[in-house]
Protein backbone atom coordinates (compact mmCIF):
# COMPACT_ATOMS: atom_id res chain seq x y z
CA UNK A 1 0.00 0.00 0.00
CA UNK A 2 2.62 2.45 1.12
CA UNK A 3 4.92 1.22 -1.64
CA UNK A 4 2.21 1.91 -4.20
CA UNK A 5 1.71 5.38 -2.85
CA UNK A 6 5.42 6.11 -3.12
CA UNK A 7 5.52 4.78 -6.65
CA UNK A 8 2.53 6.90 -7.45
CA UNK A 9 4.24 9.97 -6.07
CA UNK A 10 7.42 9.18 -7.98
CA UNK A 11 5.27 8.78 -11.07
CA UNK A 12 3.62 12.15 -10.60
CA UNK A 13 6.99 13.83 -10.04
CA UNK A 14 8.20 12.24 -13.27
CA UNK A 15 5.08 13.41 -15.06
CA UNK A 16 5.57 16.89 -13.68
CA UNK A 17 9.21 16.92 -14.77
CA UNK A 18 8.14 15.84 -18.23
CA UNK A 19 5.89 18.90 -18.49
CA UNK A 20 8.87 21.14 -17.71
CA UNK A 21 11.09 19.51 -20.33
CA UNK A 22 9.73 21.18 -23.50
CA UNK A 23 10.18 24.63 -21.98
CA UNK A 24 13.76 23.85 -20.96
CA UNK A 25 14.56 22.57 -24.44
CA UNK A 26 13.08 25.66 -26.06
CA UNK A 27 14.98 27.91 -23.66
CA UNK A 28 18.22 26.05 -24.37
CA UNK A 29 17.66 26.62 -28.09
CA UNK A 30 16.93 30.29 -27.40
CA UNK A 31 20.12 30.54 -25.36
CA UNK A 32 22.07 29.20 -28.35
CA UNK A 33 20.85 31.99 -30.64
CA UNK A 34 23.90 34.27 -30.11
CA UNK A 35 26.02 31.57 -31.82
CA UNK A 36 24.40 32.63 -35.09
CA UNK A 37 25.47 36.24 -34.58
CA UNK A 38 22.00 37.80 -34.66
CA UNK A 39 21.51 41.51 -35.30
CA UNK A 40 21.41 43.98 -32.43
CA UNK A 41 17.81 44.74 -33.26
CA UNK A 42 16.92 41.07 -32.85
CA UNK A 43 18.72 40.90 -29.52
CA UNK A 44 17.00 44.02 -28.16
CA UNK A 45 13.61 42.71 -29.20
CA UNK A 46 14.37 39.34 -27.64
CA UNK A 47 15.54 41.00 -24.42
CA UNK A 48 12.33 43.06 -24.10
CA UNK A 49 10.31 39.94 -24.89
CA UNK A 50 12.20 38.00 -22.22
CA UNK A 51 11.67 40.73 -19.63
CA UNK A 52 7.94 40.64 -20.39
CA UNK A 53 7.92 36.85 -20.15
CA UNK A 54 9.27 37.00 -16.59
CA UNK A 55 6.35 39.24 -15.60
CA UNK A 56 3.99 36.98 -17.55
CA UNK A 57 5.02 33.95 -15.50
CA UNK A 58 3.88 35.87 -12.43
CA UNK A 59 0.63 36.76 -14.14
CA UNK A 60 0.10 33.12 -15.13
CA UNK A 61 0.27 32.06 -11.47
CA UNK A 62 -2.35 34.68 -10.69
CA UNK A 63 -4.66 34.27 -13.68
CA UNK A 64 -3.93 30.76 -14.92
CA UNK A 65 -3.78 29.02 -11.56
CA UNK A 66 -5.86 31.18 -9.23
CA UNK A 67 -8.24 32.55 -11.83
CA UNK A 68 -7.93 36.20 -10.82
CA UNK A 69 -7.21 38.68 -13.56
CA UNK A 70 -5.12 41.74 -12.76
CA UNK A 71 -5.19 44.82 -14.95
CA UNK A 72 -2.43 46.45 -12.92
CA UNK A 73 0.45 44.12 -13.57
CA UNK A 74 2.50 46.75 -15.38
CA UNK A 75 2.19 48.89 -12.25
CA UNK A 76 3.90 46.13 -10.26
CA UNK A 77 6.65 46.01 -12.89
CA UNK A 78 6.89 49.78 -12.55
CA UNK A 79 7.31 49.60 -8.79
CA UNK A 80 10.27 47.27 -9.33
CA UNK A 81 11.78 49.49 -12.00
CA UNK A 82 11.42 52.69 -9.96
CA UNK A 83 12.72 50.95 -6.85
CA UNK A 84 15.84 49.94 -8.78
CA UNK A 85 16.33 53.44 -10.19
CA UNK A 86 15.77 55.25 -6.89
CA UNK A 87 17.98 52.82 -4.96
CA UNK A 88 20.78 53.30 -7.50
CA UNK A 89 20.45 57.10 -7.42
CA UNK A 90 20.07 57.70 -3.66
CA UNK A 91 21.95 54.82 -2.12
CA UNK A 92 24.29 53.65 -4.84
CA UNK A 93 22.72 50.20 -4.72
CA UNK A 94 23.77 48.04 -7.69
CA UNK A 95 21.87 45.60 -9.87
CA UNK A 96 22.14 42.45 -7.77
CA UNK A 97 21.22 44.11 -4.49
CA UNK A 98 18.37 45.91 -6.22
CA UNK A 99 16.81 42.60 -7.32
CA UNK A 100 15.62 41.38 -3.91
CA UNK A 101 14.83 44.93 -2.80
CA UNK A 102 12.68 45.61 -5.86
CA UNK A 103 11.00 42.21 -5.59
CA UNK A 104 10.17 43.06 -1.99
CA UNK A 105 8.88 46.51 -2.96
CA UNK A 106 6.61 45.05 -5.64
CA UNK A 107 5.42 42.33 -3.28
CA UNK A 108 4.55 44.91 -0.62
CA UNK A 109 2.78 47.07 -3.21
CA UNK A 110 0.88 44.00 -4.39
CA UNK A 111 -0.21 43.37 -0.83
CA UNK A 112 -1.31 46.98 -0.37
CA UNK A 113 -3.34 46.78 -3.58
CA UNK A 114 -4.48 43.22 -3.00
CA UNK A 115 -5.97 43.43 0.48
CA UNK A 116 -8.64 46.06 -0.28
CA UNK A 117 -9.17 44.91 -3.88
CA UNK A 118 -9.73 41.28 -2.98
CA UNK A 119 -11.91 42.24 -0.06
CA UNK A 120 -14.18 43.92 -2.57
CA UNK A 121 -13.93 40.75 -4.57
CA UNK A 122 -15.26 39.25 -7.76
CA UNK A 123 -15.93 41.53 -10.68
CA UNK A 124 -14.63 44.58 -8.89
CA UNK A 125 -11.11 43.25 -8.46
CA UNK A 126 -10.20 43.80 -12.09
CA UNK A 127 -11.42 47.38 -11.97
CA UNK A 128 -9.64 48.02 -8.67
CA UNK A 129 -6.30 46.84 -10.03
CA UNK A 130 -6.86 48.98 -13.13
CA UNK A 131 -7.57 52.00 -10.93
CA UNK A 132 -4.49 51.36 -8.78
CA UNK A 133 -2.41 51.16 -11.96
CA UNK A 134 -3.73 54.52 -13.15
CA UNK A 135 -3.20 56.01 -9.68
CA UNK A 136 0.40 54.86 -9.62
CA UNK A 137 1.05 56.48 -13.00
CA UNK A 138 -0.51 59.73 -11.74
CA UNK A 139 1.52 59.63 -8.52
CA UNK A 140 4.74 58.99 -10.45
CA UNK A 141 3.93 61.85 -12.83
CA UNK A 142 3.25 64.23 -9.96
CA UNK A 143 6.15 63.01 -7.83
CA UNK A 144 8.38 65.98 -8.68
CA UNK A 145 12.13 65.45 -8.72
CA UNK A 146 11.93 62.34 -6.60
CA UNK A 147 10.29 60.31 -9.37
CA UNK A 148 11.42 62.57 -12.22
CA UNK A 149 7.81 63.54 -13.06
CA UNK A 150 6.58 62.79 -16.57
CA UNK A 151 10.08 62.48 -18.04
CA UNK A 152 10.99 59.73 -15.62
CA UNK A 153 14.34 58.62 -14.27
CA UNK A 154 17.68 57.72 -15.80
CA UNK A 155 19.63 54.74 -14.61
CA UNK A 156 23.16 54.32 -15.81
CA UNK A 157 24.65 51.72 -13.50
CA UNK A 158 26.75 48.93 -15.03
CA UNK A 159 25.60 45.37 -14.48
CA UNK A 160 28.46 43.09 -13.51
CA UNK A 161 28.53 39.40 -12.80
CA UNK A 162 31.68 37.88 -11.26
CA UNK A 163 33.60 40.93 -12.43
CA UNK A 164 32.40 40.63 -16.03
CA UNK A 165 30.48 43.54 -17.52
CA UNK A 166 27.05 42.31 -18.55
CA UNK A 167 25.92 45.49 -20.29
CA UNK A 168 26.92 44.13 -23.68
CA UNK A 169 23.78 43.09 -25.60
CA UNK A 170 24.68 39.43 -26.06
CA UNK A 171 25.62 39.00 -22.41
CA UNK A 172 22.51 40.82 -21.23
CA UNK A 173 20.50 38.56 -23.53
CA UNK A 174 21.98 35.44 -21.98
CA UNK A 175 21.37 36.80 -18.51
CA UNK A 176 17.72 37.51 -19.36
CA UNK A 177 17.37 33.97 -20.74
CA UNK A 178 18.72 32.69 -17.43
CA UNK A 179 16.18 34.78 -15.56
CA UNK A 180 13.38 33.57 -17.82
CA UNK A 181 14.47 30.00 -17.14
CA UNK A 182 14.36 30.56 -13.38
CA UNK A 183 10.95 32.21 -13.73
CA UNK A 184 9.67 29.24 -15.72
CA UNK A 185 11.07 26.77 -13.19
CA UNK A 186 9.67 28.78 -10.29
CA UNK A 187 6.24 28.91 -11.88
CA UNK A 188 6.46 25.17 -12.70
CA UNK A 189 7.36 24.46 -9.06
CA UNK A 190 4.36 26.48 -7.89
CA UNK A 191 2.01 24.73 -10.33
CA UNK A 192 3.15 21.29 -9.18
CA UNK A 193 3.24 22.00 -5.46
CA UNK A 194 0.39 21.52 -3.05
CA UNK A 195 0.22 25.30 -3.00
CA UNK A 196 -0.54 25.26 -6.71
CA UNK A 197 -3.25 22.69 -6.14
CA UNK A 198 -4.77 24.93 -3.48
CA UNK A 199 -4.80 27.85 -5.89
CA UNK A 200 -6.45 25.73 -8.57
CA UNK A 201 -9.07 24.59 -6.08
CA UNK A 202 -9.89 28.24 -5.46
CA UNK A 203 -10.06 28.87 -9.20
CA UNK A 204 -12.44 25.98 -9.81
CA UNK A 205 -14.80 26.55 -6.94
CA UNK A 206 -14.16 29.23 -4.40
CA UNK A 207 -16.98 28.28 -2.04
CA UNK A 208 -16.06 24.60 -2.07
CA UNK A 209 -12.42 25.47 -1.42
CA UNK A 210 -13.45 27.63 1.52
CA UNK A 211 -15.62 24.84 2.89
CA UNK A 212 -12.56 22.56 2.88
CA UNK A 213 -10.84 24.95 5.24
CA UNK A 214 -8.75 26.76 2.65
CA UNK A 215 -8.30 30.38 3.61
CA UNK A 216 -9.39 31.72 0.23
CA UNK A 217 -8.73 35.40 0.93
CA UNK A 218 -5.22 34.85 2.22
CA UNK A 219 -4.29 32.56 -0.68
CA UNK A 220 -5.60 35.00 -3.26
CA UNK A 221 -3.55 37.82 -1.75
CA UNK A 222 -0.63 35.39 -1.57
CA UNK A 223 -0.93 34.62 -5.29
CA UNK A 224 -1.07 38.34 -6.03
CA UNK A 225 2.06 38.91 -3.93
CA UNK A 226 3.84 36.04 -5.73
CA UNK A 227 2.96 37.61 -9.08
CA UNK A 228 4.34 40.88 -7.69
CA UNK A 229 7.72 39.26 -6.98
CA UNK A 230 8.01 38.15 -10.61
CA UNK A 231 6.95 41.62 -11.74
CA UNK A 232 9.49 43.35 -9.50
CA UNK A 233 12.37 41.31 -10.87
CA UNK A 234 11.20 41.97 -14.40
CA UNK A 235 11.09 45.68 -13.55
CA UNK A 236 14.73 45.74 -12.42
CA UNK A 237 15.83 44.00 -15.61
CA UNK A 238 13.78 46.47 -17.64
CA UNK A 239 15.17 49.54 -15.88
CA UNK A 240 18.78 48.41 -16.32
CA UNK A 241 18.18 47.40 -19.93
CA UNK A 242 16.48 50.62 -21.06
CA UNK A 243 18.52 52.95 -18.85
CA UNK A 244 15.48 55.22 -18.68
CA UNK A 245 11.99 54.69 -17.26
CA UNK A 246 8.90 56.89 -17.33
CA UNK A 247 5.39 56.65 -15.84
CA UNK A 248 3.58 56.00 -19.12
CA UNK A 249 5.41 52.66 -19.46
CA UNK A 250 3.59 51.37 -16.39
CA UNK A 251 0.09 52.83 -16.70
CA UNK A 252 -2.92 50.65 -17.31
CA UNK A 253 -2.51 50.22 -21.05
CA UNK A 254 0.77 48.33 -20.76
CA UNK A 255 -1.12 46.19 -18.24
CA UNK A 256 -3.71 45.40 -20.88
CA UNK A 257 -0.94 44.31 -23.21
CA UNK A 258 0.54 42.03 -20.54
CA UNK A 259 -2.87 40.44 -19.96
CA UNK A 260 -3.28 40.08 -23.71
CA UNK A 261 0.08 38.31 -24.05
CA UNK A 262 -0.60 35.82 -21.30
CA UNK A 263 -4.05 35.04 -22.72
CA UNK A 264 -2.86 34.69 -26.31
CA UNK A 265 -0.17 32.27 -25.14
CA UNK A 266 -2.44 30.48 -22.70
CA UNK A 267 -2.22 31.19 -18.98
CA UNK A 268 -2.55 27.68 -17.63
CA UNK A 269 0.28 25.95 -19.44
CA UNK A 270 3.92 26.37 -18.61
CA UNK A 271 4.70 27.15 -22.28
CA UNK A 272 1.98 29.81 -22.44
CA UNK A 273 3.74 32.92 -21.11
CA UNK A 274 6.87 32.14 -23.13
CA UNK A 275 4.86 31.70 -26.32
CA UNK A 276 2.71 34.78 -25.68
CA UNK A 277 5.66 37.05 -24.93
CA UNK A 278 7.68 35.90 -27.94
CA UNK A 279 4.72 35.96 -30.30
CA UNK A 280 3.63 39.47 -29.40
CA UNK A 281 7.20 40.79 -29.59
CA UNK A 282 8.10 39.20 -32.92
CA UNK A 283 4.80 39.13 -34.79
CA UNK A 284 5.20 42.70 -36.15
CA UNK A 285 8.72 41.81 -37.35
CA UNK A 286 7.65 38.62 -39.05
CA UNK A 287 4.57 40.09 -40.72
CA UNK A 288 6.30 43.40 -41.36
CA UNK A 289 3.62 45.47 -39.63
CA UNK A 290 3.90 48.96 -38.23
CA UNK A 291 3.06 49.38 -34.53
CA UNK A 292 -0.51 50.53 -35.22
CA UNK A 293 -1.32 47.60 -37.48
CA UNK A 294 0.31 45.13 -35.12
CA UNK A 295 -1.80 46.35 -32.22
CA UNK A 296 -4.94 45.81 -34.29
CA UNK A 297 -3.70 42.29 -35.01
CA UNK A 298 -3.08 41.66 -31.27
CA UNK A 299 -6.57 42.82 -30.43
CA UNK A 300 -8.14 40.61 -33.08
CA UNK A 301 -5.94 37.69 -31.96
CA UNK A 302 -7.06 38.17 -28.38
CA UNK A 303 -10.74 38.18 -29.32
CA UNK A 304 -10.27 35.17 -31.59
CA UNK A 305 -8.35 33.22 -28.94
CA UNK A 306 -10.97 33.92 -26.28
CA UNK A 307 -13.86 32.99 -28.53
CA UNK A 308 -12.28 29.94 -30.18
CA UNK A 309 -9.39 28.62 -28.06
CA UNK A 310 -10.08 29.07 -24.35
CA UNK A 311 -6.72 27.45 -23.45
CA UNK A 312 -4.74 29.96 -25.46
CA UNK A 313 -2.84 29.33 -28.63
CA UNK A 314 -0.49 26.71 -27.21
CA UNK A 315 -3.32 24.88 -25.49
CA UNK A 316 -5.20 24.83 -28.78
CA UNK A 317 -2.20 23.53 -30.70
CA UNK A 318 -1.50 20.84 -28.11
CA UNK A 319 -5.12 19.72 -28.23
CA UNK A 320 -5.15 19.66 -32.01
CA UNK A 321 -1.90 17.64 -32.08
CA UNK A 322 -3.19 15.16 -29.54
CA UNK A 323 -6.38 14.76 -31.49
CA UNK A 324 -4.46 14.28 -34.73
CA UNK A 325 -1.88 11.76 -33.55
CA UNK A 326 -3.74 9.21 -31.49
CA UNK A 327 -7.18 7.82 -31.07
CA UNK A 328 -7.50 7.44 -27.32
CA UNK A 329 -6.38 10.87 -26.18
CA UNK A 330 -8.72 12.27 -28.78
CA UNK A 331 -11.69 11.17 -26.76
CA UNK A 332 -10.04 12.47 -23.65
CA UNK A 333 -9.34 15.83 -25.20
CA UNK A 334 -12.86 16.07 -26.47
CA UNK A 335 -14.13 15.39 -23.00
CA UNK A 336 -11.75 18.00 -21.66
CA UNK A 337 -12.96 20.40 -24.29
CA UNK A 338 -16.53 19.75 -23.30
CA UNK A 339 -15.69 20.25 -19.63
CA UNK A 340 -13.90 23.44 -20.55
CA UNK A 341 -16.89 24.72 -22.45
CA UNK A 342 -19.18 24.04 -19.55
CA UNK A 343 -17.13 26.02 -17.12
Amino acid sequence: MKEGLRQDRAGSVFKALRSLLPVLVILALIAAVPLFSPSNRFLSLAISAGINVIALYGLSVLFGQTGILSMGHAALVGVGAYAAAILARDFGVGFWAALPAAALASAVFAMIVGIPSLRVGGHHFVIMTFAFGQLLAIVLTNGGDYTGAATGLDLAGPVTLFGADMSDLTRYYLMVVAFVTSAAVASWAIINSSYGRTLRAIRENEKLAASLGINVGRHKIGAFVVSGIFAGISGVLLAYFLGHISPSQFSSFPSIYLALMVMIGGARLIEGPLAGGILVAFLPEVLNLDPVQSRIVYGVCLIAVIMLLPDGLIGGIVRALRAAFSGKPKQETQQRGAAEAQR
Binding site: L69, L260, M263, V292, R295, I296, G299, L302, I303, I306
Partner: peptide, 21 residues
Protein backbone atom coordinates in the same frame (compact mmCIF):
# COMPACT_ATOMS: atom_id res chain seq x y z
CA UNK B 1 -18.88 37.21 -18.37
CA UNK B 2 -15.12 37.18 -17.75
CA UNK B 3 -14.68 36.30 -21.40
CA UNK B 4 -16.87 39.25 -22.29
CA UNK B 5 -14.56 41.45 -20.30
CA UNK B 6 -11.49 40.07 -22.07
CA UNK B 7 -13.18 40.55 -25.43
CA UNK B 8 -13.79 44.17 -24.48
CA UNK B 9 -10.06 44.55 -23.76
CA UNK B 10 -9.32 43.31 -27.26
CA UNK B 11 -11.91 45.73 -28.62
CA UNK B 12 -10.23 48.67 -26.85
CA UNK B 13 -6.97 47.94 -28.61
CA UNK B 14 -8.63 47.34 -31.98
CA UNK B 15 -10.95 50.37 -31.95
CA UNK B 16 -8.25 52.77 -30.76
CA UNK B 17 -5.79 51.73 -33.38
CA UNK B 18 -8.28 51.51 -36.22
CA UNK B 19 -9.05 55.17 -35.52
CA UNK B 20 -5.32 55.96 -35.38
CA UNK B 21 -4.79 54.08 -38.62
Amino acid sequence: PTNGFIVSLGLIVVLQHVVVL
